[in-house]
Computed example of a mutant assay.
Amino acid sequence: MNPNVIFINSFLDVSEETFEKLASISTFRKFEKGYQIDKSGEVPSKIYMLISGIIRAYLSSETGKEYNKNFFMPFSFVGSLTALIKKESSRLTYEALTDCKVYEIGFKDVMQLCNEDIQVSRLYNKVLEKVFIRYEERQLEFISMDATERYLKLRKKIPGIDDLIPQYHIASYLSITPVQLSRIRKKIDNN
């Protein structure tokens, strides 16, 4: 079975007809490592279904320091959802950390389909629920886990992360310094 159909059906079983409607408004794209999909300060208009590679969402401070908010792995939806919904500039930049393959979908097209097809509307609601759940889980990690526990959880979520993503990106995601991450890794390796 088509892995894209399997991914969509992990949210909600949709008919072949509904899947075809979604496919008809999607464009397959490849992004090279380092490509910025959406940039801070710009009003986004697209949402992406990531089918291979890793994308990060990050915030830049006025001094240029970057804070990683999220890593996206296949299969997931990627986009500045708040900016899309509010039709305003994104505060985040979305960047390919590896070469990526995505399906690009106009957010306006998705919203139009939501008005026309109840299955698409239900699918959109299920995706929003999943986004909220992940957001809440991330917040709970920060208030209930120490940096080592967060790192171990991230390694479980993204096997081989240490070989895929530079250490400073991982440290930023965990809200620690690269030196702290190095110490945590060394301690884990010694155990």
Rank of each mutant, 00 (worst) to 15 (best):
Y94Q: 03
E129I: 09
N9A: 02
K39C: 12
S40L: 01
V78P: 06
I25Q: 06
R155A: 12
V131D: 06
M49E: 09
R56H: 02
C114P: 04
A23N: 13
I184N: 04
I55M: 07
F31D: 05
I176F: 07
S26G: 06
F28I: 11
K108T: 09
V127T: 05
L154Q: 00
F31N: 11
L174V: 08
Q36L: 11
Y58V: 03
A171L: 10
Y124W: 15
Y173P: 00
M1R: 11
K130Q: 15
S24N: 15
S182N: 11
S52I: 01
G106V: 01
P74I: 00
A96I: 07
F107N: 03
I143P: 00
S15P: 08
S76G: 11
S60K: 12
R150G: 06
N115D: 13
D117E: 13
V120L: 01
S76E: 14
L50D: 04
T98P: 03
I25W: 00
S52R: 12
L12D: 00
Y135F: 10
G64P: 00
K86N: 13
F77N: 04
K65C: 06
A96P: 05
G53D: 03
S89I: 05
S90D: 10
K39S: 14
F71Y: 13
R155I: 10
L92E: 12
N4R: 14
S121V: 00
V43S: 11
G64A: 10
V120C: 05
V179M: 11
K69Y: 02
K156Y: 07
L50S: 06
L113C: 08
S175Q: 15
F19P: 00
D109W: 05
I188P: 06
I47A: 06
V5F: 04
S52H: 07
P178N: 07
Q139G: 08
R56P: 01
A83C: 05
F107Q: 00
T93Q: 08
I51F: 07
R122K: 13
C100F: 05
N190G: 01
G160K: 09
R183N: 12
F75A: 03
L59S: 08
S40T: 09
V110F: 03
I133W: 02
R183T: 10
C100Q: 06
T98L: 14
D117G: 03
Y173T: 07
G79P: 04
S40V: 06
E16K: 13
S24Y: 01
I184F: 05
G160L: 08
V179P: 00
F107E: 08
M73C: 10
K65V: 14
A171G: 07
I176N: 08
P166I: 04
K187P: 00
L174G: 09
D99W: 04
K153D: 12
I8W: 01
F71M: 08
G34S: 07
S61F: 03
Y35L: 10
F28R: 13
